[in-house]
Design a protein around this nucleic acid. Sequence first.
DNA 1: TTTTAATGTCAACAACGCTGACGTAAAATT
DNA 2: AATTTTACGTCAGCGTTGTTGACATTAAAA
Lengths: 181, 181
Amino acid sequence: MSQDAPTAPRPRRPLHGAARPGGENLLFLTDQQLRQGVELMFFAYRDMVADADRLLETRGYGRAHHRCLHFVWRSPGLPVTALLDILKVTKQSLNRVLRQLVEDGLIRSEIGREDRRQRLLRLTPDGEDLVRALSAAQNERMRRVFLDAGPEAVQAFKTVLAGMIDEASRDAALALIEDQG
Amino acid sequence: MSQDAPTAPRPRRPLHGAARPGGENLLFLTDQQLRQGVELMFFAYRDMVADADRLLETRGYGRAHHRCLHFVWRSPGLPVTALLDILKVTKQSLNRVLRQLVEDGLIRSEIGREDRRQRLLRLTPDGEDLVRALSAAQNERMRRVFLDAGPEAVQAFKTVLAGMIDEASRDAALALIEDQG
DNA sequence: TTTTAATGTCAACAACGCTGACGTAAAATT
DNA sequence: AATTTTACGTCAGCGTTGTTGACATTAAAA
């Protein structure tokens, strides 16, 4: 069954209904438009991570390792609990990849000075090398797309994505994202 | 190590560098901007699929089932190979969830009339019900975000996402996306 | 008739989520 | 000082979903 179940003939291509001046054109909110947004997220995300995935598998790592390295890089010295909050996975799941990365010498974990229960995570030089390589793979795609789209489109792109984050975690996520390393 | 390794002091918040009129402002192409795009994709995608995930797990299904149902819904009667091309997974991986969905009566598979080797996939009424419920979960989030952002932002959002799809599969993906069920 | 294409299936494996249970060290609270 | 809570690690087991490799069937194509 289609999404709108319309009985009247549809306009041929209502993809981007131009808003009438001062009007209340809501054609961009049809179920069809929403579905397109979801599908585009699926395809774009799949291909965006594919570049890094190829690099990772040559080292026997997966996406979980990538995410772990990335956010440790972004917030050097962050405790394990903070990383758990960012990734929203269980500590068992995180610990599996974290242990590997520490054993492999990409991340080092040191006891917190203020709170000695904490393990503060940092990248080693090798870890930084890998993060740089992973970023380069994804950035090349992103740069080309951003250049084609232009600054206003990039801004809109970010606004929409930010709106899709759960309200409960949005502020924290945006703070992390906008923080200059 | 930071992404730009700048030695000069950075502007405090170059998040959305306003293009000078007629100028060649490329502040929106800094590594920082690209990184933000990647991170936003991560957070937004994670939370976008979370709604459907919750619904799926009550039925013992996962995302693979969702994707399968979704694209069969979008292209009723499509053969298995076409679905493999869309999802870009192995036939063994697809077949595992496809078998379940057929056994559970959400998808029916019928022998192709022109090519009797093909199995043409269609949703059963039960399958359509589940797809509708899954779409509803995701559409609510998307609708709210689109409404807040406005039609121009939505358009830009889609343009950027489309640009992130691999060139090799972009045309096919966009044709599928823009096709009105 | 031989080859190729479309599909299904079995087996084994890996990445990465999850729950539950248990343990240790250190901080916080009572 | 004793208790509780927090931060972390770990073992065991399980589920989803991806992979490769091998093999079989059916039907279309050459």
